[in-house]
Write a protein that binds this DNA or RNA. Structure first.
Length: 587
RNA sequence: GCGCCCUUAACUCAGCUGGAUAGAGUAACUGCCUUCUAAGCAGUAAGCCGAAGGUUCGAAUCCUUCAGGGCGCGCCA
């Protein structure tokens, strides 16, 4: 249950009620009044909730704000409301203070809902598909994929918590130009290994790694093993070629190039895809669906989309190519659908894919997590969907800014061309999954992100994930100690004994979770939850410092605090579960 | 040239549907463990919220212009 929203609604209702009676008594004129805000003030000294009703009504009522506030205050009937007092402050704010029973209800509610606490129904069971990472299967995942993975997976958790029927999907780009390029690259490396120089390397090397290093050279392009422009240079390509050679020898070298590429792709691509699955599993990401692009070609979807777009009337021919009139539908410029050589551009399967999501599979919403370098492409995709008669607002693209990897305070150059980008696997060798997932969700997607390798590797307290986990472990330890001395967490306690600032601050923070989940779901911003978890941990640590549990002034108070601790532990565990970060019982 | 994003404390960032003295974490300095985990807490210091205009009772927040940084603008994906 969302105690914050309920209390906020109560403020609004109390004020509207009071205004109604003021009108009835003729104290203020009966005219439509502007909407007002009920918010949680930044400064607690300004109450638990503040309303600006008196200020926004000052002009239409032609009365000073404080005077209006006083009139409203005189008419308020706090009665059964969660509030026990109201103050007028500053230019005319009305500050509402929560009564003790509200705090008690929050704790009882968490005790009752347990792992369900924090879930809401705001998504009304709508079906949402979250597509994320969708890394190119021609190579390993890089740091950008790692960020997308953490953000997408946590966003899906948030949407689940908010009551959406959520599915996670990985789109496998197993067709098109980059697969051609993959085949070409594999073939070149394979033929190099079959050559005299390659054979010499194979004889001399003790391991695949040594072969890769020898062939790769300093930057993937050595005089002995030259590579042309526009191929993949990474060592993973060499390793695939070497493995194929190990298993099948050089018989393939005599085949036509087309056949060689086909065989090498058929050999390497499934391995890569399995590698992606394994790496993502290690990163605690599990998809409901792995959707191969190739199926869209095989089942005729791509051709059908082209036909449908033609029928829409938004296409034209120019220079032998088929163009889409995206500009007429809000995009910045028209683009090519089918090249003069008859091969569709990458956008067509993409359009077909999103059509599949929203029409064929009929998800209510589709959410894509993409790198910011795709921003220009989003309006075009949406324009195409519009032309197909699909409400493009059902697709939301979360753009995430680039990750700048820092080492020794300097940015690490990520060279895609030479295949030297930092991979997810390498990253996870250095830092724990917990830290990586938390770190990548620390900032909202749409902000430039600086990943400090030294800091993440450090495992120090500067990394906030330890701060949050420590709070959980600390509570577990406390509960364990008391249980060992015969004091288990009680099922009921005199909660109203807890009225100190530290206790109340903690409870208010606990009460905030459902509202945070809703906000995060609405804004598609899972980073709100990491921030929330840090704030909650901070409130607990303060409470821990200010209030003794074991040596409380009375057993009744001790029991009440024990219940509060357990509620806090539960909420920390719930948030960490959404982030898929472990909640340790000991540290 | 056009478009998107960013610019807040020494560093990394919150705050942005306009609200009451601008927040947190790091780093610096000071205190707090014979007592539930000091991976913690409390405190000090630190800011012309990139610049200039505008809107208003009120602007870090909205609008305009400008400056600096990142990223896009292919019959590449």
């Amino acid at each position: 249950m969302n105690h914050i929203a309920a209390a906020s609604e109560a403020v609004r209702a109390l004020i509207l009620d009071a205004l109604g009676r003021l009108v009835a008594e003729g104290a203020i004129p009966a005219e439509p009044l502007p909407d007002f805000n009920v918010e949680i003030p930044a400064d607690r000294a300004h109450g638990d909730f503040a309303a600006n009703v008196a200020m926004v009504c000052a002009k239409p009522l032609r009365m000073p704000p404080r005077k209006i506030a006083e009139l409203i205050e005189g008419m308020l009937e706090l009665g059964d409301s969660p509030f026990d007092r109201v103050e007028i402050a500053g230019p005319g704010f009305m500050n509402f203070y929560l009564g003790q029973s509200w705090y008690d209800d929050v704790i009882r509610n968490i005790t009752e809902e347990q792992a369900r606490y924090g879930t809401t129904g705001s998504g009304r069971s709508k079906r949402v598909l979250v597509e994320f990472v969708s890394a190119n299967p021609t190579g390993p995942m890089h740091v950008g994929n790692a960020r997308g993975g953490a953000i997408g997976d946590c966003l899906a958790s948030v949407l689940e918590a908010a009551g959406y029927q959520t599915e996670r999907e990985f789109y496998i780009n197993d067709a098109g130009n980059q697969i051609e390029k993959f085949g070409r690259s594999l073939d070149l490396r394979y033929m190099q290994l079959c050559s005299e120089k390659g054979q010499a390397v194979l004889r001399a090397a003790q391991s695949t790694e040594e072969v890769c290093r020898a062939v790769y050279g300093a930057d993937g392009n050595t005089p002995d093993f030259p590579m042309p422009e526009d191929v993949y240079l990474g060592q993973d390509i060499i390793a695939h070629a070497k493995h194929y050679y190990d298993e099948n020898g050089d018989a393939l070298a005599a085949q036509p190039e087309e056949e060689r590429r086909k065989a090498l792709v058929a050999f390497a691509l499934p391995k890569n895809i399995q590698g992606l699955k394994d790496d993502l599993a290690q990163y605690r990401i599990h998809y409901d669906t792995w959707f191969p692009e190739s199926t869209l070609h095989q089942d005729g979807s791509v051709q059908r989309i082209i036909a449908q777009l033609k029928e829409s009337g938004y296409t034209y021919e120019k220079d032998g190519a088929l163009w889409f009139e995206a500009e007429k539908l809000g995009a910045d410029k028209d683009f090519v659908l089918v090249r003069a050589n008859g091969i569709p551009t990458y956008v067509v399967p993409d359009i077909a894919y999103h059509y599949n999501k929203l029409v064929t599979r009929n998800f209510d919403r589709a959410i894509d997590i993409l790198g910011a370098d795709h921003h220009g492409y989003v309006p075009r995709l949406k324009a195409a969907l519009t032309a197909l008669g699909v409400d493009a607002s059902r697709l939301t693209v979360v753009l995430m800014q680039m990750v700048a990897v820092m080492r020794d305070g300097k940015p690490v150059k990520q060279s895609k061309r030479s295949g030297k980008a930092l991979t997810l696997v390498t990253l996870l060798e250095d830092i724990p999954v917990d830290a990586a997932r938390f770190f990548f969700n620390l900032r909202e997607a749409n902000s430039h992100f600086e990943f400090d390798l030294d800091l993440a590797v450090e495992k120090s307290a500067s990394n906030p994930v330890y701060y949050v986990q420590y709070a959980h472990a600390r509570i577990c330890s406390l509960i364990r100690n008391l249980a060992d001395s015969g004091v288990p967490v009680p099922e009921q306690a005199e909660l109203s004994l807890m009225g100190s600032p530290a206790e109340r601050m903690l409870v208010r923070q606990l009460a905030l979770l459902p509202a945070e989940v809703d906000t995060a779901a609405k804004a598609l911003d899972p980073s709100r939850l990491t921030k929330y978890s840090v704030d909650l941990a901070a409130q607990f640590h303060r409470f821990y410092d200010a209030c003794k549990v074991k040596d409380a002034e009375s057993e009744a108070l001790r029991d009440a605090r024990l219940m509060l601790c357990e509620a806090t532990r539960q909420v920390l565990a719930n948030v960490l579960a959404m982030l898929k970060v472990t909640a340790p019982e000991k540290m």
